[in-house]
Design a protein around this nucleic acid. Structure first.
Length: 289
RNA sequence: GGUGCGUUGGCCGAGUGGCUAGGCAAUGGUCUGCAAAACCAUGUACAGUGGUUCGAUUCCGCUACGCACCU
């Protein structure tokens, strides 16, 4: 028996088979499944995000699965950190000694494990304005401004990356203080133990699973799902593999076969980035499937 | 059998007697509130073989393969 309650986090690249494993773990520990997936959150997106099936959802109580809307405004890792911790504490108080979290969003997982600094939420009007400048004037316009306001941040931020530069700049402009001045807090302490288990498969096997799953998504009606969401394509939630490619196909940029190929390829890229993210995390216990 | 054309890195695709496009894929990486996002990095390939030349992927010959046409 652990003196402290324990959070077991099951992670791994897309299509590795986390969903089924998470159910087995949850049943073994009499825990619900706390999902940590930045896209399965949305009730409007199900086929393209490979959300658990109805039978799977009936087996174990799930949290953060399709329990909010793409229209609820921008969801972020910071919000997830707050909401997930709140839930975790509540469940521990209810008597669970072990909780199962499962998902593939590395940034969200880190937010729960290590915490993010206390930064202000984005002002959406400001962010839109900065994003417009990025598209119209180029990254140099933003990076040079950041360089003059907060030279410290320029050392650690990827100055070619529009999203990063915008985030830093918006915090500077909103608070009047340099973005870098916020990034000083030590890692947050959690009053529960964290045990990370990573699932992995040989690269070729994983890629084959990805390809098959995309085939299956098409058979299940992914095209129709995407078509119904086409009018919301500008929302951040829909900047997602499996949807954005179909939106372009609807626009006539290419045909459905090409769209499927692109979804498969982009899913491979996504899986690769996930593995890179976790590659440097020494706390993960890896299990080959 | 004859004639002509072609053969460029995993794929597509420019080009040049010396300064060795590009795109895609693939691979490696970055990451403090859009993260299934955004961004960065990485390839001397010119079918084979002789020759011409200071130097050949680029010029010439032969061989192989492919395509087209002819008998």
């Amino acid at each position: 028996m652990s003196p402290k309650p324990r959070l077991i986090i099951l992670l791994g690249p897309t299509a590795v088979g986390k969903t089924e494993l998470s159910l087995e773990f949850a049943e073994k520990y009499s825990s619900p499944v706390i999902s940590c997936d930045s896209r399965q959150l949305y009730k409007e997106m199900s086929i393209g995000t490979a959300v658990p099936t109805e039978e799977q959802l009936a087996r174990v109580r799930h949290y953060f699965i399709q329990d909010r809307s793409i229209h609820d405004g921008l969801y972020t890792a910071g919000r997830y950190e707050i909401e997930a911790l709140e839930l975790i504490h509540k469940l521990f108080e209810q008597g669970h000694d072990t909780l199962i979290m499962a998902g593939g969003s590395g940034f969200y997982i880190d937010a729960v494990c290590k915490g993010l600094d206390d930064l202000p939420q984005a002002d959406m009007a400001l962010r839109e304005e900065l994003t417009r400048r990025w598209k119209e004037e180029g990254i140099e316009s933003l990076s040079s401004q950041l360089r003059s306001i907060d030279p410290e941040s320029c050392l650690s931020i990827d100055m070619a990356n529009g999203q990063r530069v915008i985030r830093a700049l918006e915090v500077c402009l909103m608070t009047g203080k340099p973005f870098s001045s916020f990034k000083t807090s030590p890692k947050k302490q959690r009053n529960f133990e964290i045990h990370k288990i990573g699932f992995i498969r040989p690269r070729d096997v994983l890629y084959e699973r990805i390809n098959r799953r995309v085939d299956l998504m098409f058979a299940q009606g992914l095209v129709e799902e995407a078509r119904s969401l086409y009018k919301h394509r500008k929302l951040a939630a829909l900047q997602t593999v499996g949807y954005k490619e179909l939106f372009d196909a609807f626009d006539g940029l290419y045909d459905m076969d090409k769209a499927k190929e692109l979804i498969q390829r982009n899913s491979r890229h996504y899986a690769k980035r996930q593995m890179t993210w976790w590659g440097k995390d020494k706390d993960i216990e890896w299990r080959e499937l």
